[in-house]
Design a protein around this nucleic acid. Sequence first.
DNA 1: CGCTGTCTTGATCACTATCAAACCGAGTGG
DNA 2: CCACTCGGTTTGATAGTGATCAAGACAGCG
Lengths: 242, 242
Amino acid sequence: MVTRCDACPLRGRSLFADMSDEEVRQTQRFKVGELTVEAGTPILTEGAHSAQLFTVLSGVGLRHKVLQNGRRHVLTFLFPGDLIGLQGAVMGEMGHTVEARSRMRLCVFDRQALWNFFGNSPSRSYDLIWIAATEEHFMGEALVTVGQRTAEESVAWALVKLWKRAATLEMTDGAAMPMPFKQQDLADALGLSLVHTNKTLAKFRERQLAVWRDGRLQVNDLETLARIGMTDTAPPKPRPLL
Amino acid sequence: MVTRCDACPLRGRSLFADMSDEEVRQTQRFKVGELTVEAGTPILTEGAHSAQLFTVLSGVGLRHKVLQNGRRHVLTFLFPGDLIGLQGAVMGEMGHTVEARSRMRLCVFDRQALWNFFGNSPSRSYDLIWIAATEEHFMGEALVTVGQRTAEESVAWALVKLWKRAATLEMTDGAAMPMPFKQQDLADALGLSLVHTNKTLAKFRERQLAVWRDGRLQVNDLETLARIGMTDTAPPKPRPLL
DNA sequence: CGCTGTCTTGATCACTATCAAACCGAGTGG
DNA sequence: CCACTCGGTTTGATAGTGATCAAGACAGCG
């Protein structure tokens, strides 16, 4: 029932850095269980004192923050391999909410594990910083996008990001990938209205660059999208897996 | 000439967490020097392979990224106590450029120090994660701002943030603080045009909420600004100092 | 003193939000 | 089997926030 770390289906994927047997054992020791949640379920909520850390085993979700006036911003989309709850574990409380967008399986780690890492395993604590720094780097990119890119550029950028991420996770079959997100989610991630996001997607569909339909995203011309979104098509660097 | 860590002028400020004598000695051991740069000088540039880490001792600066089409986004403003270059040290290259906006004094640490921390000092490596997580948290707030707040709300939010930061650093005398940034910097941080930013500031000036003039920012009604910007006036939590 | 950089203000434009309504597939229940 | 609802998507019409264009003010400076 519960996946053993030495049989972790993620470790083989090209996105993730190699782990030594010792690191796998350490990780296993700190894994306290597995959690399955249905689409739509909040996993952690803003302001909550989370006692747990999760790693996404399968499925997708998102992090978002809501403003006092009810407007919502989606910070990042979550894919297998992503670590959830580091902020809460370190800072005491979560700065955002985490929600499932498909059925998700999550590895559960005890928050305590974190402190053990610092004492026992310099390489693992380095990995944690690596993850935090990378996350920050991504947020920087998102900030530039929302701040400086036009709607068309933003959507293209986001599609390329999503596609590249899915591709390195081998979630793409043929030219399509599962897209359980709503268009509203994408709109809220880019600071655009739902209507405008939809119309922009429609333009890409007409131009045969990308077709998002029936919960699947099909990308026909990644290069052109990347050019429009002013980004590149290089695969992301290998990242450590917790 | 060079400030000794045990005489660090920052450590007493309310913004920073207490350090043990041992931590001060450790920090001193890793400090390799001090650097003074003039306003306008780039300290680290995007893509560069930085071999060094800095902590701001005095002065202010900013981090920014530029897009292929030349548009620029300011990610954060830098104040005394901020750590610069962690991303570069961890990920190999900087994801943004760091630039001085006033004369700045910087403590210089060797990148190598980082690895030593992981091995020798769990509490210091925890501090590093804390810093990275906090930075990420801030970026999240900025993302919500740029994505969801109106121009007026954004500017109010930014002024409150700047003011609170300066206040805990005791950089405010009376009702004013030094503001060596350009309005263009603020505009680029909020994803607004210079003209619109200027007009929004003018409105706040007319309403006597805040007056930014001659390189100084005077805040008359922090509460109202916070209400407009949908944020709070609580001082930031104490943070570790490297 | 002209030059340059920054701030300021006014006029105009357009990208994107908002409003409104139809559409569509999947349930659900009579 | 059909009416009905419901969440999500799609499309059209209109409005507005904020961008862009333009020009003047002002200070510092070679």
